[in-house]
Amino acid sequence: MRSRVIISLVAVALVTCASVRAADDSPSPSPTPSPPAAAQAAPKEQAKEPSPPPSVTVIGARDAHGILGRDVRSAANEDMGRIVDVIVDRDGKVRAAVIDFGGFLGVGSRKIVVDWKALRFAGVNNKSDSIVLDLNKQQVSAAPEYKEDTPVIVLGAAGSLQPWDYEH
């Protein structure tokens, strides 16, 4: 029922946007005189067409979840930390996740970067569910620490990493 209400509200918003746009496109009731010759010689500022309404996508509550702050566990149920950031390349493709690993209550922890393909989201149904990492605690503890504005060293599951071109 709730999703039908949301879809109905979205439909009303789109119809309203379309009717406002149609009203803007209708001819004005009185003709506008042409500008004087001096105004025509000035650089033309073209009237911008109104931009089209944004597209709308409805994603079911069970189909997508936020991941920042989510617990990460190994396949053996070892605590691997929490996701604190996501790394994308210049094309906007998600490449890796930054995990705050080790320590206790944030003390003594360090950030490491794991390949996005090494994470498993299949069992994530609500906020209390953990994301599973295809690496064990020993492998992750050997990873170098992530520091912003330096080349990113990404730890991945065996055979899943691809070269990542970057410029200094």
Rank of each mutant, 00 (worst) to 15 (best):
M1N: 10
M1C: 08
M1D: 09
R2P: 15
R2Y: 15
I6E: 05
S8I: 02
L9G: 05
A11D: 10
V12D: 00
A13E: 02
A13P: 01
L14M: 08
T16G: 04
C17L: 08
A18V: 09
S19A: 13
V20F: 13
V20C: 11
R21N: 12
A22T: 12
A22D: 11
A23T: 06
D25W: 06
D25L: 12
D25F: 07
S26Y: 01
P27H: 00
S28R: 07
S28V: 05
P29F: 06
S30N: 14
S30W: 13
T32K: 15
P33S: 15
A37E: 14
A41I: 15
K44F: 07
Q46I: 11
K48C: 14
S51R: 14
V58F: 11
I59A: 06
I59E: 06
G60Q: 05
A61V: 06
A61H: 04
R62Y: 08
D63P: 06
A64H: 01
G66Y: 04
G66A: 07
I67K: 03
I67H: 06
L68G: 04
G69M: 04
G69T: 03
D71C: 09
S74R: 11
N77F: 09
D79M: 02
G81Y: 01
G81E: 02
I83G: 00
D85V: 02
D85T: 03
I87T: 02
I87G: 02
D89L: 02
R90Q: 05
G92L: 04
G92N: 05
R95E: 04
A96I: 00
V98E: 00
I99V: 05
D100R: 01
F101N: 00
G103F: 01
G103M: 02
F104C: 06
L105C: 03
G106D: 08
V107T: 12
S109T: 03
V113F: 06
V114R: 12
W116Q: 15
A118D: 13
A122L: 13
G123F: 11
V124S: 05
S128C: 01
D129Y: 00
I131V: 13
I131C: 02
V132H: 04
V132Q: 09
D134N: 15
N136L: 09
N136S: 11
Q138K: 14
Q138Y: 11
Q138M: 12
V140A: 10
V140W: 03
A142G: 09
A142N: 13
A142V: 05
A142K: 14
E148K: 13
E148W: 04
P151M: 05
L155N: 11
L155E: 12
G156F: 10
G159A: 03
S160V: 10
S160H: 09
P163G: 01
P163I: 00
W164D: 06
D165I: 05
E167Y: 13
H168G: 09
H168T: 08
